[in-house]
Structure formats: C-alpha cells, structure tokens
Design a protein around this nucleic acid. Sequence first.
DNA 1: TTGAAAGCGCTAACAC
DNA 2: GTGTTAGCGCTTTCAA
Lengths: 331, 331
Amino acid sequence: MKRVTIYDVAKEAGVSLATVSRVINGLEIVREETRVKVETAIDKLGYKPNAIAQGLALQKTTTIALLVPEASFAYTGQIINGLIDVAKIYKYNIMLHTMTEGIVDIKDVIDDVIKSRVDGVIIYNDKLMEDELAELSKYHFPIVIIGNKMSDTQISSVYVDIEKAVYELTLSKLHEDKTRSIGVIQDRKNDFTTKQMINGVRRAYEEMGIDKDGYIEIPSEYRRSYDYFLDHIKEIPYDFMIANRDSQAISAMNAAHEVGLEIPKDLELVCLIDSKYNSMVRPRLSSFAIPAYDLGAVSMRVLTKMLNEDEVDDKEIELSYLYTPRQSTRN
Amino acid sequence: MKRVTIYDVAKEAGVSLATVSRVINGLEIVREETRVKVETAIDKLGYKPNAIAQGLALQKTTTIALLVPEASFAYTGQIINGLIDVAKIYKYNIMLHTMTEGIVDIKDVIDDVIKSRVDGVIIYNDKLMEDELAELSKYHFPIVIIGNKMSDTQISSVYVDIEKAVYELTLSKLHEDKTRSIGVIQDRKNDFTTKQMINGVRRAYEEMGIDKDGYIEIPSEYRRSYDYFLDHIKEIPYDFMIANRDSQAISAMNAAHEVGLEIPKDLELVCLIDSKYNSMVRPRLSSFAIPAYDLGAVSMRVLTKMLNEDEVDDKEIELSYLYTPRQSTRN
DNA sequence: TTGAAAGCGCTAACAC
DNA sequence: GTGTTAGCGCTTTCAA
C-alpha cells in the first residue's frame, strides 16, 4: 500500500482537501451526502491522517513526555499504568524517557523533549532537577511533578506527604511506649524520600522530647543492604525500622532471621511502598500503601487541565496513604 | 520566550535558512566562519529544531512505538530498560503504548501507532495478535516481536525458547529419577507461555515413555493462585512444579508451607522469570533467568538494522537462558 | 456547504 | 559555500 494522503482521498471522493479535513475532524458543516462520499473514499484507500502533519499545522502534538528514573521498578510501572490509562481517555500519546543515572545525560533528555514539541511533560524523579525544570520552563512546557510538592506558573505537582506518614507512625508507636526506638533505613537510590522519612521520625522524637537520631545509614562499602544488615543488625539501636522499598525491609527481615532475631518480637519492620511481595514474604510485611497508580492517573488529569484551561486552581495535590499492618509489626 | 524558528536564526545570523539547516545537521559544506555565526545565533535565541517539522520534511520521525501488555511487571520494566538504553544510542524516541486487557481496545492502539508515523514498532505481548500485525504490515511498518518466534518480510523476532528450557529441565529431572512427577502451573495471564511450558514437559514425558499430563490448571473460580494451592496443593499429583512468574511459585511455596509440606523435601519449585525476589524469599527460589533486559536491547538493535538496511539476514534471534538452582530444589 | 490558498518549520534539490 | 524554492500533509481563514 502506497502512502495515501488527504489529497488522494479528496480526488477519490471528488471533493477538495478542505472538505476531507472537515470530515476527519468531525466538523458539522459537511453535508451528509458528501460526508459519506468522503468516508467511503477513506475506507477504500485505507487513509489514516498523518499526526505529524497535523502536529505541524496545529502546533500541538497530543503527545506528552514522561520522564522517569528507570522503568525497572514495580512502583514506577504502576505510575505509568495510571498515567497511560488517563492519557488514553484524553487521546494523548506518551513519549517515555528514562534517566538512568550514569548512562544517560539528563541534558540530552531535556533537549529531546524540547525538540519533540510535546504538549506537556510529567516528571517522576526523586531528585528535583532544578536546572532542567528551568530549561523546560523557558520553552513554556506545562509540567507536572510527581512526588515532590512544588508549583509555579507552569508547574503543578501531585505527591504523598511521606514525612507526615512516617511522623504519624512514629508518634503513635512512641505514644504506645516511650521507650520504643524507631529508625529509618537509608535508601541510597532515593535521597529525597529518605530525607522526608528521617524528618518525619525526628519531628516525632522532638515532639516527645526524646533525644534520638532515627537514621540508619548504610555505608557505601556495602553494595546490598542485606550484606550490611547481616553484619550489623544486632548493633543497630532501633527495634522498629522503616524502609522505603519492600526489598530493603525484606533484606533486613532475612538478615534478622539469619542472626537469630525474631520478627516482630525482637524487631519490627515496615516499608512505604506496597507491593504484592509484602504479602508474599513470611512474616507478611506491614507497609504503607502509597497510591502509585493514582499518582500517575491524577498527574495526567492535572496536566490535561493545564493544557485546556489557562488557570488551574489547585496546583499542589496531596494524595493520601494508607497504613496496612501485617505480621512484621506487633498488634 | 517566544517560539523561535529556523527563520529567526537565519535572520539573526544574516544567512539563509538553508545554511542554518546545514549547521544543525552538521553538514561539512559550511565555512567555519559562518558556522560560528549561526551557532552564536542559535545559542542567543535558544533555538531548538522542531522535530515535528523535521519529521514531516524527512518522512521519518526517529521515533519507534513500543507496545506492551501492561507496564506493571518487573519483567516488562527490564525489557523497556534494555530497549531504551539502545534506542538512546541510535537517537530514537519511544512512544509507549500499553494494551491493558478490558480497558484498551487494541484496534485503537494500532490506529494511534499508524497515525503517529513512527519509523518502526516493537511488540511484546504473550498473545500473537495476527490481525493487528497484518494491519501494521499494510502500512509497511518494520516490526520486531519480542517473545514469539516468527518472521516475515517486515517482521523480525527476538525470543527465548521456553519450551526447550522446560523440556530440558524436565528431562534432566526424569533422568535422575524416573518416578519424578513434574507439572507446570497455569499462568492465566500468559497463555502462550503456559502452552510452551506444557509442551516442554509433555515432550520430555513422551521421550521417557511416561504417560503423564504435566499440567496444573487453576480453576477460574480462584482469583489468586495462593487460594487454590491452599485448598488443593496436597492433592496435586506433582512433586516438582514449574511456574512462569515468581509470584506464582511463591504462592505455591507459602501454601505448601501452610499445609505442612516441606520445600524442597516434599515439593520442589521453580519459576521461569528471575526477579530479585527469588533470592529474597525463604527458601530461595530456584529459577531460570530469562534475559529480559537483553530481549529489549537486542530487539531495538534489530529494529535499527531493519530501518537502515534493506535486508536483515537474521530475522529470528534466539536468546539463551540460564538455570539457577537455589534452595527450592534439591541437589 | 464547499473550495482556494496561505502557512506550520524544516529539508533537499538546484542554481548561483 | 550559500541562497532560492518546492515540497512534506495537514488546518484554517476567506471567498464563493
């Protein structure tokens, strides 16, 4: 099949290309009879409008760029699912860009995004990337940030208040028993999240007038947290540990078991991200449920709003979390 | 910043737009002096070439479409990572389309792909979608299929021979001990993979002259395989079970444990997909290592080959797997 | 209700 | 080595 354009359809139907364009775009001002003629021609020739040409003529691509750190995590996948489901509804396509640290130069990614003339961009990244945001802003891209609370003329955000989540959990544990000792496991891949978690714990400590740090740092000589825990879990001065990712909590769980610690009797464990594996390990892992799918879906919704209206009222949208106690915590 | 085009740059630099175009595209025939003039203008104005206009003029978008069933699985994520890393090297962008069953009409996805005039498409899906492939072929898209062995004028594929993997494992177990009873756990979400696994087991049985079926079907009234195993694992006439996904094997593992079966003494367990969770559960789960990242990376490489050469010699590329015994199997 | 024509931003002959 | 110009396929005034 040869490339068939709007001209071919016009000729086949015996009308002008303007009329074909009207039919394609469902404009009402076309007489029924000619509309049928055109549609017949379209079917016969197998014509599909060229989105690139449309994009050029209309100055919009109905495509949005999605930037994520990597595509490997179950969590990111959920975000993408939510986002795409909503994008489908509004007929937007997704250009996926990953920013694998070390492999990809973020400047290049931003450059690609600008050149591609997408209608908007959604960024999910633990790091804030102020320079890159500034660069995108120069070119007037509407932007939605997932995970970081912030906003600007052209920027909205959708996030979960992780600090609050950790703060509340810590506080409630401390209320139960003031001697509880609660610490956050460092997540090297997610600095900002780690920082929020730590702040949450510290705020709770402060409020209770307890002088504690609440931070479990994994020395860089340990490539896997499991190895670190195996060596040091007995010395860690916390009897309640909060991790970001399920895999980290599971590592601690396994190491604890290996060195004879009992969970949750000797050590309690919680993670932020809720994956199906939380219910698959034994003991089942207590966790928060950060609504990953919703973060994606809401972000896309916010973006379409920014794309269609001049002013968006709510530029910072906080999504709520749920705490789901399972077997790795008492009570 | 207002929209700046190649004309603006030309005017600013005092040259024609053709010259600017030459500079952008790095053509050698521009005098050093004028090149510098143009580059200065580009920097000053913050000009970025419009990929849409380029696409229209060149009849190529340097974008490829990637179709995946969902973005939620760790496995799919790995494929995407491999694919994107290679795509970056060749300067291709990725349009991500998911085909969530029930939510998305695949016809619409194919339609979007055709309209977007991507240079090629890569499809990872357990189902074959012959109609959709035919439709894409009509429009001459080069296509790479991940996971299914097949080829055509316009179609290449990259896959792992799962049937062989399961066949060889089964056969070796049967050689160790003819009384072994090996069965494949149905994966409802991946019919084709399930079929290949079953065929592998059956071929091994046949070869050994054993009259067995080797198929563990999970009745549709059970939404989760865990529930099924909890009810029925004691009656299942297999002492060695092969699952596709880690989560299924883990479900069986947990259920077995719950009803007092010991692993690997009473029941051995293996899964095809190698995720980090295989090493995190106790006992550690033996598994194959289907090279997900490589499936993606190689696919993208094959596609660029198809895009640049007229004929590709190797249209069906088989990737090899590894078997990694851990604690869920004896020996 | 329909058609003619300009323009979206760029590339690639072809001319100078 | 550089400029002129005709497309690429579509949308959208403006006329008819």
